[in-house]
Simulated assay, not measured.
Amino acid sequence: MELFMRLKPLISVFALSLMLTGCSKVQNAFMDEQVKDRTDYSLITDQEHVRVILCGTGTPQVNSPRGQACTLVAAGGTLFLFDAGENAMRNLERNQVPVSAITKVFITHLHSDHISGLGGVINHSWVNGRQGPLTVYGPLGVSGLVKGLAMAYADDTRFRSMHFVPHPELAFAQAQTFFFNRGVESVRVYEQNGVTIDAYRVDHRPVDPAVGYLLSYGGKKVFISGDTRVSDLYLGALQDADLVVHEAINSGLIHQAADAMRRQGHAVEAQRALRVLDYHADTLELARLAERAKVKHLVLTHLIPSPPNFIARYLFSKGMADHYRGIITIGEDAMDIRI
């Protein structure tokens, strides 16, 4: 294997030279490899496990290489997409997700980094052969979002259907809005083929409503938080959960960054950085809540600030293990977890 790795650059150069000199066998083999179907159909054929793919673990932070908020859960032969921030479609394809099978999207709230990739998901799944309607579930406001996207993509749909894409009626999503009765903190929004999904109120004020989602299947529980401060509002959803995908902010690092901004004369930027602490989940507070709820595995996403390397990831989660005895994972785009 070591010898092969050393020779690999030479092999690549040799293959390229054959292609350039017109060796049809090499060219055909190269093209065959490029177009090979690598779609992971086990995501819709595996009836036993729950699969969770992180298709976006970042934020609007301009220097973050991560995709914006996006989590895919496969359960009971169905794909459930939770939020669709920028680059959602690209990251789903990189994970070989069968995009034409995406028919159910759940929006946690209407901040742009949770919806800016939704139009691409709707449009691209149609272009790639989706056979049924796509439903977007969400709290108040999701209907306007879906209608606005339909207007934005109207001409694109007309052009593509005139050219080669059939069933233009499937190019647009349908909205399913849910509401909370007074004094009720959760509501069931989906129940089919053994899968249930409950929406829980979270505390992302002044954004209201904002929700997280609890998916249950085969005795397994997965909670996706959306954006929220740590709160007992959704403690019941976390109770004994097998996996919790939760947004996280390291308050200490944010304060240090704000101090550095002030030293550099960027007082406005420093104040803006501190403002985000008001409605996001501090890592240490989150660890305490997860311990109270006896969460088995805590996956951190929507990471603020985005940790670019091993040292930054260590600093990001530092101290959490002092309060939480379960498994802690710092999420990365394309991470695939099976439970």
Rank of each mutant, 00 (worst) to 15 (best):
G77Y: 00
V136H: 10
I122K: 07
V207F: 11
N309H: 12
Q27N: 15
I330P: 14
P139Y: 08
G141T: 10
V146H: 12
L298V: 05
T301V: 13
P206S: 13
D46A: 02
Q192T: 11
L253I: 15
S143H: 13
N309M: 04
P305H: 04
P308G: 09
L286E: 06
D46V: 01
V52F: 08
P9A: 12
V202D: 05
L284Y: 09
E93W: 01
V189G: 00
Y41N: 06
D336L: 08
L81G: 06
Q176L: 11
A270E: 06
A199C: 09
I44G: 05
K25Q: 15
H204W: 10
R288I: 00
P206D: 12
V230D: 07
S251R: 13
D227G: 06
V97G: 12
P305G: 06
Q61D: 15
T108S: 15
I122T: 03
L3R: 13
F164P: 01
H124G: 12
V142H: 12
F159I: 15
R130I: 03
M261Q: 14
A152Y: 04
K221E: 02
D32A: 05
S17Q: 10
G319H: 10
A273I: 08
R158T: 01
Q27H: 05
R275T: 14
R275K: 11
V62Q: 14
A88W: 07
G183Q: 03
L243E: 05
G56C: 06
I327A: 14
A237S: 12
L170E: 01
Q271I: 01
K36C: 00
A270N: 00
P206L: 14
D198H: 02
R275P: 05
D198Y: 07
A101Q: 15
V99A: 00
L303E: 08
K318M: 08
L315S: 09
I102W: 11
G218N: 03
K318G: 07
D278T: 13
K294N: 14
L215S: 07
A321P: 00
H204C: 11
F106M: 01
G194H: 01
D113V: 07
A171T: 06
G319F: 00
V73A: 04
A75F: 05
R130S: 00
A210T: 15
L235I: 14
L110S: 06
D83L: 11
